[in-house]
Simulated assay, not measured.
Amino acid sequence: MGGRMARSLQSAAVTPSSPTDLPSDPPADAPAGDKPTGEAHPLHRRLKSFVKRGGRTTEGQARAYEQFGPRFLLPYRAEALDFAAAFGRQAPTVLEIGFGMGEATAHIAALMPEKNFLCCEVHEPGVGALLKRIGEQQLQNIRICAHDAVDVLDHMLPPASLAGVHVFFPDPWHKTRHNKRRLIQPPFVRKLADRLAPGGYLHCATDWQPYAEQMLEVLSGEPLLRNTAEGYAPKPDYRPLTKFENRGLKLGHGVWDVVFERR
């Protein structure tokens, strides 16, 4: 999680993007780059779920791919995931979208050995870094799907199958004309809420106040969710301060957590 977190959906990829679908699931052959027309919401068209970003995989990360990939990498398949088969046990499962270099992911998984963590990231060095942490810390409760999380949500995760969702530091798309590219938008949040079991939680975090305000507004507008706090939530103990976040705090930057529960 060093640096930007959920870039698997809006940036930080080294593979071609997969299209994001509508709540109404448009046809597979719909063009990915069409510009919105009329009053259509930008998420009502096929969007790229991430864009290409360069990155070099280190020798250590490459070794981790070879050593731990066969066990901890899950292939994307357009069919419902068998959680017990994937993790070797039945346990509450938390989805993490875009884990960066895996620092926070490994920390949280170690704190919560009773939970399974399904982690989506397409940035190869980040996947290699998390595999390396899995080996170093002997973590057993993480599985990685190196694929667009939107496809994973749509085709691998049945309704009410998740105990939680983490979306930490998604790309804020600072420029106003790019705000429509932000991940946390009503159609996507509806997908997440639908996959949460009753009592499950959705935890978003950002260091960009305008995005925090958008997150709070969008999640508050989703009827399947309720806020666990009066506005922004205190930082849950399980979410560690990363080097990136500590650096920002020292510079006077704020960090906002938003935690909602499935009704």
Rank of each mutant, 00 (worst) to 15 (best):
A146D: 01
L43K: 12
P70E: 04
G126C: 07
P240S: 06
R63G: 00
R4Q: 09
V127C: 12
M1W: 02
L118M: 09
S49F: 06
A106K: 05
F188D: 00
A205N: 01
R46F: 10
E39P: 02
D171N: 14
A212Y: 03
F169P: 02
K52V: 02
K250E: 15
E79D: 13
A40N: 02
G60L: 12
T176N: 09
R143L: 09
R143E: 11
K115A: 13
P170V: 07
R195L: 05
K115Y: 14
S8M: 00
M156E: 08
R45Q: 04
S17A: 15
P27A: 15
L95R: 10
Y201R: 14
S24I: 04
T105S: 15
F50G: 01
P125N: 02
A40W: 01
F99K: 03
A64H: 05
P31A: 13
A62V: 00
A229P: 02
F244G: 05
A28N: 05
P27R: 13
H178D: 13
T176W: 00
N246S: 13
L196I: 08
E103W: 10
G128D: 09
P172G: 04
M156D: 05
K52S: 01
Q137W: 10
I97G: 03
P125S: 04
R56E: 08
R46D: 00
P159Q: 14
A163F: 03
I97V: 15
A193S: 14
L22D: 14
A62K: 14
P158R: 11
E261K: 12
K250H: 12
G199C: 11
R63N: 07
F68I: 00
H123M: 04
A30E: 14
K243V: 11
K250S: 13
P223L: 04
L202D: 04
R247A: 14
A229D: 14
L111R: 15
F169K: 01
L241K: 12
P223H: 07
A80K: 11
Q10D: 04
W173M: 02
K250M: 13
G3K: 04
L118H: 12
P27T: 07
L196W: 12
L153K: 02
L219V: 06
W256Q: 12
P172M: 04
I108E: 13
G126I: 11
L241F: 13
F244T: 13
H41V: 00
I108Q: 11
R263C: 07
A233D: 14
F87H: 03
L224Q: 15
A30M: 12
R262P: 06
G2W: 00
M215F: 07
A28L: 13
P234W: 01
L73T: 08
K175W: 03
P26A: 11
S8G: 15
G54C: 01
Y211S: 03
Q185S: 10
L251Q: 15
R56M: 06
A149I: 10
D171T: 07
P70Y: 07
P172F: 06
F169G: 05
A80W: 12
G60T: 08
D194E: 15
G88H: 06
T58L: 08
L139F: 06
F188R: 04
V218R: 07
Y232N: 11
R4Y: 11
K175Y: 06
A13M: 03
F244V: 03
L183Y: 00
H107F: 15
M156N: 10
H174K: 08
G252F: 10
A104W: 05
L162G: 05
K250F: 01
